[in-house]
Each structure stands twice: as structure tokens, then as C-alpha cells.
Simulated scan of single mutants.
Amino acid sequence: MIGKTIDELKVGDSASFAKTVTEADAYNYAGVSGDFNPAHINEEYAKNTKFETRIAHGMISAGFISAVLGTQLPGPGTIYLGQELKFTHPVHYGDTITATCTVEELIPEKNRVILKTTCTNQFGYVVIEGKATVLAPQK
């Protein structure tokens, strides 16, 4: 299975992935990454933060962008080269996050694709915005 090649893509193409972020996701992410920041896993500590409760690791939602790129747009065979991220709103356990990637620029001579990347919650708040640079799959 191969994703879309540079010749099959066009500016404006878009794809999304949605998932509800759970407490289990955070504990699994902490175990894999080693990020045991108490803002994510310790409710007593988190009560004294500006969010007043635990928030999910931002990189969990950022991972949903990777899911779009690697499975849908451009899809299997895509190589991630870079990502700019701006975290704009906290993600709480139980929030459903939708990652959307939209082709902004095609650079055929380098087989590169620049995509706008956005993650929103179930209320429509943008929680992450940025840009990804990838190599499109080759046949």
C-alpha cells in the first residue's frame, strides 16, 4: 500500500483523524516517553496550576498529526522531515481531538509537501497549529 505521490497531490487536499484522549493514553505516553511531568499525571499537583486540573501531554495530540500524514495524506510511505507546532489551548482527558492536515505547497523537484496542521477539540477550539514538511511516497 502506497500513499499519494507528489503527482497525485494538489494544494487544498485535506485529511483528518479524530480520537478521544484518555487518562490511559497519558499514562501510556508517560511510560513510553519518560515524561512524568506532574501537570499530566498528578491531580493534587495540577490543582495548583493555572489549568486547575491535569492536562494531557501536548505531544499526544501532535501524534495525531503523524497519524494523518502516515496513513492518509500523503499516506503510507511518507517520510516526516519537520514539524512546527504552537500549542494554543490545553487538552483535558475526555476531549476529542481532530487533527487535520491540508496541503499548502508542493515542491515537485524535491518531492516535498508542505502541509498546514491543525488540531481542534470537540468545541472547535484550536489546540495546536503548525506546518509539516514531508517527503511524498514514491512508486
Rank of each mutant, 00 (worst) to 15 (best):
residue 38 P to Q: 13
residue 67 A to G: 10
residue 20 T to E: 11
residue 33 S to C: 13
residue 112 R to Q: 15
residue 44 E to C: 03
residue 28 N to L: 14
residue 139 K to I: 04
residue 32 V to N: 01
residue 100 T to L: 01
residue 122 Q to L: 07
residue 82 G to P: 09
residue 55 I to R: 03
residue 16 S to C: 03
residue 126 V to Q: 08
residue 97 I to Y: 03
residue 89 H to V: 07
residue 134 V to W: 09
residue 75 G to T: 04
residue 123 F to I: 08
residue 47 K to E: 09
residue 17 F to M: 08
residue 133 T to A: 10
residue 132 A to T: 06
residue 74 P to S: 15
residue 20 T to R: 14
residue 13 D to E: 11
residue 38 P to C: 05
residue 118 T to H: 00
residue 95 D to R: 04
residue 61 S to Y: 07
residue 102 T to I: 12
residue 77 G to N: 14
residue 138 Q to G: 13
residue 10 K to I: 03
residue 102 T to C: 10
residue 81 L to F: 12
residue 21 V to T: 10
residue 89 H to M: 02
residue 116 K to T: 13
residue 28 N to C: 11
residue 16 S to P: 02
residue 39 A to Y: 15
residue 83 Q to W: 00
residue 84 E to F: 11
residue 99 A to T: 04
residue 21 V to D: 06
residue 115 L to Q: 11
residue 114 I to G: 10
residue 32 V to I: 15
residue 45 Y to W: 13
residue 23 E to D: 05
residue 15 A to Y: 00
residue 128 I to R: 04
residue 64 F to K: 05
residue 98 T to I: 00
residue 4 K to N: 14
residue 96 T to W: 05
residue 91 V to I: 13
residue 72 Q to D: 09
residue 72 Q to C: 07
residue 101 C to F: 02
residue 131 K to S: 14
residue 30 A to T: 14
residue 93 Y to M: 01
residue 112 R to T: 11
residue 9 L to K: 09
residue 134 V to K: 02
residue 133 T to P: 13
residue 102 T to V: 08
residue 65 I to A: 00
residue 42 N to L: 11
residue 89 H to S: 15
residue 112 R to G: 07
residue 48 N to A: 12
residue 5 T to L: 02
residue 130 G to E: 00
residue 72 Q to Y: 07
residue 54 R to L: 00
residue 3 G to F: 06
residue 47 K to W: 07
residue 105 E to H: 11
residue 63 G to C: 12
residue 2 I to S: 15
residue 85 L to P: 11
residue 27 Y to L: 15
residue 137 P to V: 13
residue 41 I to S: 08
residue 60 I to F: 02
residue 56 A to F: 03
residue 108 P to C: 12
residue 94 G to L: 00
residue 28 N to F: 07
residue 53 T to Q: 15
residue 138 Q to D: 08
residue 126 V to D: 02
residue 4 K to G: 07
